[in-house]
């Protein structure tokens, strides 16, 4: 009888563990610059079977034991205005989130998916801050039309991975998340 109860309890624990892992999926997303591009990445992740948690205003104490932080960089004056923050506050927020993520042993992936259309003074300001934060950098071609990402990645010694389109970030994302243990 005791063994039977133990087996049932063990099965329950396993079930909780397995379903917990499936739900958490180990990725948290936040925009760097408050553009909606992070939602595009969330959808690419969903198609990979990864249910990334998107928190537009993620703070250092908002990390929930995830393995990977993905921040999608693109400046949006409208988005910053809606969030009620300015560019300095956004940079400070990301510095503190990335520091907390590092302390927690998480990996940080910086992405830029908007191509040339999502470059400009505000975005470039965030890019300069974001690249050195990255363990890896994933950039949709066109975004690096002037070599800014290439130069910053070289300076910060960060691996930069190009993708032809947002949709085609799927392959590199799968490889990165596999390497970092989120995907089997």
């Amino acid at each position: 009888m005791k063994n039977r109860v133990r087996r049932i309890l063990l099965a329950l624990v396993l079930c909780v563990a397995v379903s917990g892992a499936a739900l958490a999926d180990g990725v948290v997303l936040t925009p760097f610059g408050q553009s909606p591009d992070a939602m595009m990445v969330r959808v690419v992740l969903k198609k990979l079977g990864v249910d990334g948690r998107l928190d537009k205003l993620l703070e250092a104490d908002g990390l929930q034991g995830e393995q990977v932080l993905i921040t999608v960089v693109a400046g949006s004056s409208k988005g910053l205005g809606e969030a009620g923050i300015d560019k300095d506050a956004e940079i400070a927020r990301m510095n503190s989130v990335v520091a907390a993520a590092r302390q927690a042993g998480m990996k940080t992936l910086v992405m830029h998916i908007g191509g040339k259309g999502r470059r400009g003074t505000l975005t470039d300001l965030f890019i300069v801050e974001a690249v050195p934060m990255a363990d890896k950098l994933l950039v949709v071609e066109g975004g690096d039309f002037d070599g800014l990402f290439t130069r910053l990645a070289q300076e910060a010694d960060v691996e930069m991975i190009p993708a032809p389109s947002v949709r085609e970030t799927s392959g590199p994302l799968e490889a990165i998340l596999t390497e970092w243990g989120v995907l089997p």
Partner: peptide, 10 residues
């Protein structure tokens, strides 16, 4: 390839 924007509530 198209950009996504969210409505500006203001």
């Amino acid at each position: 390839s198209m950009k996504l924007e969210e409505s500006n509530s203001t």
